[in-house]
């Protein structure tokens, strides 16, 4: 995985306590204010710096160029991929043919993988968010024996590299008969320590203890209070966690690669890689145009979600990073 933070680890990136939290960095009110409304880094209004804008422009080009390359090349046929200039369109516009090709290749296995991915996202990310919300709320609003222990163990385990877990998890699951089933991908996705942490921090402030006490006086059960009152107050935190776990499961590669040996249950990531790898196997058909178009189709929903829900993940990151 990668600085190389995979999404899962990147989530974890926000979880460790800062080595030496500076007195200056107060936790932001969560959700953080919209960025446009925030105070700028200085006191007085400053002139625009052309040099700085140009340098940031270079970084933006670096970030966007490969995506542009992907869009351009998904419009090319396999042969013009080889014959035309990489950063511009060729004379034939084959995007629609490529999309049809991607969706129908090998009896439409791409669609099957898409459905699998959606299943993993709904069950894995949905479940992870639910468990994290429940537990984060429990940590924030109840005192119980072993509470400190729970926190220490969860934080400590985050530092254990995923590598150390992957192979033993596979062996364990294979003895339990879970490998090659959707469960082997869903169950490990159900834990989001970052989500737990975020909801915990959020619930401390967002759910007033007096409200819970009032509900208790009225004789409402704790779970009833949670589902009817608290959950609504936790909604922004819940949505942030959901977005990040959705990204983590949508982009998951290592885990399904290990757990699944048949393509029936592949998610898009593993499936795409198998299409790419088949060109190098004996007798395999090279389908680079479909790999490229499939890659584009894979990132469209997730990039779209990020752009559309900017407000949420940005406040989520600010909540996690300064603590």
């Amino acid at each position: 995985m990668s600085v190389h933070l995979s999404p899962a680890q990147a989530e974890a990136a926000a979880t460790l306590p800062a080595p030496s939290p500076s007195p200056a960095s107060k936790p932001p009110k969560f959700p953080a204010p919209k960025f446009s409304a925030r105070r700028r880094g200085g006191v007085t209004r400053k002139r625009t710096s052309i040099l700085l804008t140009v340098l940031m422009g270079v970084m933006a080009v670096y970030a966007l160029l490969p995506l542009f390359w992907l869009i351009v090349n998904s419009t090319k046929t396999q042969s013009s991929l080889f014959s035309s200039f990489g950063l511009w369109f060729s004379s034939d516009f084959a995007l629609w043919d490529n999309i049809t090709g991607t969706l129908t290749y090998n009896d439409g296995e791409f669609l099957r993988w898409l459905a699998n991915t959606v299943l993993y996202v709904v069950a894995g990310a949905g479940g992870a968010t639910f468990l994290a919300t429940l537990a984060g709320y429990g940590l924030a609003k109840f005192d119980f024996p072993g509470k400190r222990g729970v926190f220490a163990v969860v934080l400590g385990a985050v530092a254990v590299p995923g590598t150390a877990l992957a192979v033993p998890t596979f062996l364990m699951f294979s003895q339990m008969g879970l490998t090659n089933t959707p469960w082997s991908v869903i169950i490990p996705s159900l834990i989001s320590p970052f989500g737990l942490y975020l909801v915990w921090i959020y619930a401390l402030e967002a759910v007033p203890t007096e409200v819970l006490e009032a509900a208790r006086v009225d004789g409402a059960g704790e779970f009833r209070t949670f589902f009817t009152i608290s959950l609504r107050m936790l909604a922004p935190g819940f949505i942030t966690v959901l977005l990040f776990t959705v990204v983590a499961t949508w982009n998951n590669y290592f885990l399904p690669l290990i757990m699944l040996s048949q393509s029936t249950w592949y998610p898009l990531t593993v499936g795409l890689n198998s299409w790419n790898a088949q060109a190098t196997t004996a007798g395999g058909e090279a389908i680079y145009n479909l790999v490229i178009t499939g890659s584009l189709l894979t990132i469209v929903p997730i990039v779209g979600a990020f752009l559309f829900l900017q407000r949420f993940w940005q406040s989520g990151l600010s909540a996690g990073s300064v603590k």
Binding site: P66, L70, N251, Y253, L272, N273, V291, S295
Partner: peptide
């Protein structure tokens, strides 16, 4: 920030 949303598989293939 956008590249962060791109799966490692797609980033590497690209």
């Amino acid at each position: 920030f956008l590249p962060y949303a791109v799966p490692a598989v797609v980033a590497t293939l690209m």
